[in-house]
Simulated scan of single mutants.
Amino acid sequence: MKRTAAIAFAVIASVACGAAKPAAVPTPSPTPTSTSTTSTSPAPTATPSPSPSAPPEFTAAVARVSRDQLPYSWRPGCPVSYRDLRLVTLTYWGFDNRPHTGELVVRKNVTDDIRKAFKKLYDRRWPIRRMKLVDAYKASDFDSIEADNTSAFNCRRVDNSPNWSNHAYGEAIDINPRENPYVTASGGTSHANARKFTKRPLQGKGVINPGDRVVKIFSQVGWEWGGYFSGDKDYQHFSKGGG
């Protein structure tokens, strides 16, 4: 009986201990924060327009001339030896508003003048039609002018004269001869494609006028302009010291 009572007491005590243990309190879930359903797109970034590529820098390379490079423009008996001439390969600004590479043959003592003058023309984007050696036209001054070709050395004499032209010394240049023709005192020219360019002053691409930038640029290196000749005018012509 005592044993039964003891067992019953132990059971009651066990139940009482279990009832005294506090019940687990659930941890409250965090209150969800409401978010806006409207999304904000980033502001569009303006794409910069590509800048036009810069034109190449002016270059002027000077080299010796071989006899084979001047098959028509030089011959024995010319007032200078071909050994005294130099080939200048330089950059010029074309009538198409793009840079080009041309060639001039000049006397070696004026190569610095050429580089200085044509660099200034190029930097100002002053246009030149074309620039080939006169040998491309078999040294025909008339054909070179008809093609509006800018050229320098050509072993030839002054028209209707026994005297050598300054071109025969490599110390003269004809620039854009169509736009800047040789004009007689009576106002005539021997090239039909140049007749509308015989008056000065005259506005137009590649035209040279009294006192303009081209005349001043060549004057700065000691070259004179044929447009200042008395009587006949040679608007295309520049020469070292004149003549």
Rank of each mutant, 00 (worst) to 15 (best):
K196S: 15
H100L: 11
R98Y: 00
P127V: 07
K199I: 08
T111G: 08
F118C: 08
P162S: 08
Y92R: 07
P44M: 02
H100N: 10
K233N: 04
A16T: 12
D84C: 09
N97E: 02
R107W: 12
D159I: 13
G188M: 08
A147S: 14
R107H: 15
K132C: 09
K240D: 14
P201F: 02
T59K: 12
Y235N: 01
A6C: 12
L202D: 05
H100G: 05
R75Q: 10
A117Y: 04
A54R: 00
V207K: 01
M131K: 05
G188C: 03
D96S: 07
F238Q: 09
P52C: 06
R67Q: 14
G243F: 03
V110M: 10
Y137D: 13
S81N: 12
R213L: 15
R64K: 14
R83T: 01
S81M: 10
D232A: 14
D112F: 03
K138G: 09
A54W: 01
T47Q: 10
I208F: 09
I12C: 14
T40G: 05
K240Q: 11
A139P: 03
S165V: 00
F197I: 09
F229P: 01
T31V: 14
W164G: 07
R86W: 03
P127M: 00
A23R: 14
T150Y: 12
D84Y: 06
H237V: 10
S190F: 09
S161Y: 03
I217D: 05
S190K: 04
T89I: 03
